[in-house]
């Protein structure tokens, strides 16, 4: 298993074997009172208004946990238990399980985003909604070229995980502060799960907190950049489908380790949809497809919750004070020297 430890809530949950329990029998979820259809306000120039500071943290895993079977939605009681189990598993204030587990839990809970201990309001068992089993579709077989590239990166990741990187190329792009949660699709992580949406005539702009980039999306139907231009965050174009913002992104760079599950930029497609379903909630839905990576397209739905005006975005400079790059490397050189003696 590639050992770059994953920032995501589920990745951390698996770091220790999970002994959570769930009722196997149980009612399907009770539907709440029929929701009144919400009409999003509009900007003065007539676009649905998605503006604000939004947070996507949740403990609901991307993929449906094993042994849940086909249960897509939990009852109120099951949901409470599910959430409590996840919160306990993910808590950084726990000190049990031995030092090896403990050191990885740094830091205390209050350094983390508290919302990541809550499951989604609709009590689903996975963020993936299609396929209906809530799991990422089977991976396609990699071409020999891609296998080779992936193997090289895996070797570097192994050295890094052992605390002995050869040089900065053994570290991942996020560790090197090139990209973090700003490469779509947007997935929840342990902190700074914030996005600010700005709207101006003819544009929608999404600014993720990490790493301080802005996706300025033209809505005027202009073509994508020519395919010879490639970017870390790709190139995005948007349109309105009723009240839903639909954006498509192409022109991704070919660097290994940037796209989700190392999808192949030449054949990868991502479509994202944003619908304001309540004054304080946007449904963020993404569909990804890549025949070279997955056996079929798949879709996830992640609620975004409004957090302004009380909470604002703050600058997330990363490379500027990334002392750890030097710590990893000088630490490795020192330990190699000690081992030589």
């Amino acid at each position: 298993m590639r050992h770059s430890l994953l920032f995501t809530v589920v990745g951390l949950a698996l770091a220790a074997v999970v002994g959570l329990v769930m009722p196997t029998a149980g009612q399907g979820s009770k539907t709440g009172p029929a929701a009144k259809k919400y009409t999003a306000p509009k900007t003065p120039w007539g676009d649905p208004d998605l503006q604000g500071v939004w947070n996507d943290a949740t403990s609901t895993p991307l993929e449906r946990p094993a042994n849940v079977g086909e249960k897509g939605v939990l009852s109120d009681e099951e949901a409470e238990e599910f959430q409590a189990s996840l919160a306990n598993e993910l808590s950084r204030d726990r000190r049990d399980g031995g030092n090896a587990a403990d050191v990885n839990r740094a830091y205390n809970e209050h350094w983390m985003d508290a919302r990541r201990l809550k499951i989604t309001a609709d009590k689903r068992t996975s963020l993936i909604v299609d396929p209906v089993d809530g799991r990422i579709p089977v991976l396609a077989n990699l071409s020999p070229e891609r296998q080779k590239v992936r193997a090289v990166r895996a070797e570097g990741a192994k050295r890094f995980a052992a605390g002995l990187p050869d040089d900065y190329t053994d570290m991942s792009w996020p560790v090197r502060c090139v990209v973090r949660t700003d490469v779509p699709p947007y997935l929840p992580t342990i902190y700074n799960n914030n996005f600010q949406i700005f709207q101006s005539p003819g544009y929608v702009t999404i600014a993720p907190e990490m790493i301080h980039s802005a996706r300025i999306i033209p809505m005027d139907g202009r073509p994508h950049l020519h395919k010879s231009l490639r970017q870390w965050l790709g190139d995005t174009r948007g349109r309105w489908d009723g009240s839903t913002l639909v954006i498509e992104t192409t022109n991704f760079r070919a660097d290994e380790g940037v796209l989700f599950q190392n999808a192949n930029p030449a054949t990868y497609k991502i479509t994202e949809r944003f619908t304001r379903v309540a004054a304080d909630s946007i449904n963020y839905e993404f569909t990804v497809e890549d025949p070279a990576t997955w056996s079929r397209p798949w879709t996830a739905l992640i609620p975004w919750n409004k957090v302004d005006p009380d909470e604002q975005m703050f600058e997330y400079a990363c490379h500027e004070d990334n002392f750890d790059i030097v710590h990893f490397l000088t630490g490795a050189r020192l330990r190699e020297k000690k081992a030589e003696r």
């Binding site: 050869d166 040089d167 900065y168 090197r176 502060c177 090139v178 990209v179 870390w232 490379h319 790059i325 030097v326 490397l329 000088t330 490795a332 050189r333 190699e336």
Partner: peptide
Amino acid sequence: KCVPFTEELLFGKFRK
């Protein structure tokens, strides 16, 4: 995104 353009300058000397 110029970070990759600077890594050798900043971190190259710590290479194994």
